[in-house]
């Protein structure tokens, strides 16, 4: 299978940040989604962290590190005017209760129905368990669920697949997929290829994507 050069992870995150409207409450998962926070400066967007914080500030460094103040990825963060702390039940009340506007998560696999797999890593060789964390609660409660991930695995296999071969996190929940090579909408008819990495063709993207893609009439290069 052909290997294509695409956007670095930081730039996938930048593209995702453009998708988030001001006045939104947003939860960012581990991995590429966490990097989205680097692109939100000056935006009126409030980050929810499942550990129990609203309005999570930038990553803390040096003397600003406070051992009582981390985000859900265990990174030292900062407090900003308007930050709030609360306990885990209230936090998951926000998440499961549908109060968070946009949720961004990573995934191992996504299919055309909007099902996705993110919690179980078979390469770990542990049967029956994995780090579910808050992923299933976030997915079930999401009003809009965006997936940010590499288009293919490290060894070049499609991550956008016909059938999930990893156990699902949730079904029929994904709204949109952002990869290093493409932006794809998940609609009832299937997957719509909306944006592609400059220089690539829809055929290139199809060659590394299992489900048949619907090509958007207004398809364009990824704007960053």
């Amino acid at each position: 299978m052909k290997k294509f050069e695409g956007l670095p992870r930081e730039i996938i995150a930048l593209r995702v940040s453009r998708e988030i409207k001001d006045n939104s409450y947003v939860n960012l998962g581990i991995g590429i989604p966490t990097l989205v926070s680097n692109w939100l400066e000056g935006r009126d967007i409030i980050l929810q962290s499942e550990i129990g914080m609203l309005k999570t500030g930038p990553i803390a460094e040096g003397e600003f590190i406070d051992q009582d103040l981390i985000n859900a990825s265990c990174q030292a963060v900062t407090e900003v005017p308007g930050s709030v702390y609360f306990d885990i039940c209230e936090s998951f009340g926000m998440i499961r209760g549908g109060h968070v506007d946009i949720t961004v998560m990573g995934a191992f696999q996504v299919n055309a129905a909007g099902d996705f797999a993110s919690w179980y890593n078979p390469s770990r060789g542990l049967e029956g368990v994995g780090n579910v964390g808050g992923s299933m609660d976030l997915a079930v409660g999401a009003k809009i669920l965006l997936i940010a991930m590499e288009h293919v695995t490290n060894d070049g296999k499609p991550k956008i697949v016909r059938e999930l071969t990893y156990p699902a996190t949730a079904k029929k929940k994904v709204s949109k997929i952002f990869t290093d090579l493409a932006v794809i909408d998940v609609v009832p008819e299937g997957l719509v290829l909306k944006e592609i990495y400059p220089g690539l063709t829809p055929e290139d993207i199809q060659s590394i994507t299992e489900p048949v893609l619907i090509i958007a009439p207004d398809i364009k290069e990824i704007e960053i």
């Binding site: 039940c89 936090s91 808050g134 609660d137 949730a170």
Partner: peptide
């Protein structure tokens, strides 16, 4: 799932023996 676990403790503390949650469906 983390939210389910939080709620299992809450239920334990609040005298609710069990609960239904959509988390994990699918």
């Amino acid at each position: 799932p983390m939210g389910t676990l939080a709620e299992k403790y809450r239920a334990g503390g609040a005298g609710i023996p069990a609960f239904f949650t959509p988390t994990g469906s699918g």
